[in-house]
């Protein structure tokens, strides 16, 4: 995996804009805006991001939002619960597809 993932990629993420600067600017502006305090606090948004990072299994995001959650005052218990939320939704999503399997199997079976 080390060949695919390099920690420096995250630090150099801005370079993604070198080929399509306008799109990158729009993305980073939007990204920055999303994480501002709003109806949700920045701390709550960081916990959501941490959960999503686990759901999409992005090591860059896991590193960034582990640090962000701690710096915004969250503790390990809260962060672990957030990961369980991601796990429950991912697991539930897999399991609920079992209904599709059952429907198809029923149609094909005598």
């Amino acid at each position: 995996m080390a060949e695919y993932y390099d920690r420096k990629d995250l630090l150099n993420f801005g370079e993604i804009g070198s080929e399509a600067p306008e799109l990158a600017k729009k993305f980073f502006d939007y990204y920055g805006e999303v994480f501002q305090e709003g109806e949700l606090t920045a701390r709550e948004k960081a916990l959501i991001a941490l959960a999503v990072a686990h759901a999409v299994q992005c090591p860059y995001c896991i590193e960034a939002y582990t640090q962000a959650c701690l710096e915004k005052g969250s503790n390990l218990g809260e962060m672990t619960e957030a990961v369980h939320v991601a796990c429950a939704i991912k697991g539930g999503a897999a399991l609920v597809h079992g209904m599709q399997m059952r429907r198809l199997a029923a149609k094909l079976s005598m």
Binding site: E37, T41, A42, R43, Q67, L70, E71, K72, G73
Partner: peptide
């Protein structure tokens, strides 16, 4: 006074105080 329990920076004071 709240100092972080590790190698990270503290949260913004006003939000932490509220919590």
């Amino acid at each position: 006074v709240s100092n972080p329990a590790g190698a990270f920076l503290p949260p913004a004071q006003s939000q932490a105080e509220e919590r």
